[in-house]
Computed example of a mutant assay.
Amino acid sequence: MSGVFFEVFWVFHPLVPLRIPRKMPKTLLHKLSRLAILKAKPQVKPYLLSDGGRLFLRVQPDGAKLWRWKYEFAGKNKTMALGTWPEVTEKEARAAHAAGRELLRKGVDPMRERRMAKAQARLQASETFESVAKAWIASQKSHWSENYLDKIERRLKKNAYPWIGQRSIGEISTHEYVTEVIHRARDRGVADTARRVRETCNCVFRHAVETGIIKVSENPALDPKVGGVRTPSVKHYAAITEPEALGQLIRAIRSYKGTPIVRAALQFTPLVFQRPGQVRAAEWDQFDLKRGLWICRPP
Rank of each mutant, 00 (worst) to 15 (best):
M1F: 01
F5V: 11
F6E: 14
E7A: 11
V8K: 12
F9A: 13
W10A: 15
W10L: 13
V11C: 06
L15I: 02
V16A: 01
R22Y: 01
P25E: 04
K26L: 04
T27Y: 05
L28Y: 08
K31C: 10
L32S: 12
A36M: 10
K39Q: 15
Q43E: 15
K45V: 06
P46M: 15
P46A: 15
Y47L: 09
L49Q: 12
S50I: 11
G52Q: 03
V59A: 11
V59R: 13
G63T: 12
A64M: 14
A64H: 05
L66C: 04
W67V: 07
R68G: 04
K70D: 08
Y71V: 05
G75F: 07
K76A: 11
N77S: 10
T79I: 12
A81M: 10
G83F: 02
T84M: 10
P86V: 07
R94G: 04
G100N: 02
R101S: 12
L103I: 05
R105C: 01
G107K: 01
D109K: 08
D109H: 04
M111K: 14
M111T: 11
R112A: 15
R112M: 13
R112T: 13
R115S: 14
A117Y: 02
A119N: 05
Q124A: 00
E127S: 14
E127D: 04
T128K: 06
F129T: 01
S131F: 09
S131Y: 04
V132K: 02
A135R: 13
W136A: 01
S142F: 09
H143R: 14
H143G: 14
N147K: 12
D150N: 14
I152E: 00
R154N: 11
R155E: 06
K157G: 08
K157W: 03
A160G: 05
P162E: 08
W163V: 02
I164C: 07
G165E: 07
G165Y: 03
G165T: 07
G165I: 03
Q166E: 13
Q166D: 15
S168V: 07
S168H: 00
I169K: 03
I169G: 04
G170R: 00
G170M: 06
E176A: 15
V178H: 04
R184I: 00
R184W: 03
A185Y: 06
D187P: 01
D187L: 07
A191K: 11
A191E: 15
T193N: 12
T193S: 07
A194Q: 08
R198K: 14
T200E: 05
T200M: 06
C201G: 05
C203E: 13
V209L: 01
T211I: 10
G212K: 08
N219I: 06
L222E: 05
K225V: 08
G227T: 04
G228I: 03
V229H: 08
R230Y: 04
T231Q: 14
S233D: 00
A238C: 04
E242C: 11
P243W: 09
G247S: 02
Q248Y: 07
L249W: 11
I253V: 14
R263P: 00
L266P: 03
F268K: 02
P270M: 04
L271D: 09
V272R: 03
F273K: 07
F273P: 03
Q274T: 15
Q274V: 15
R280W: 09
A281S: 15
A281H: 12
F287M: 06
D288H: 04
L289R: 10
R291H: 05
R291D: 09
R291S: 12
W294G: 06
R297M: 06
P299M: 10
P299Y: 10
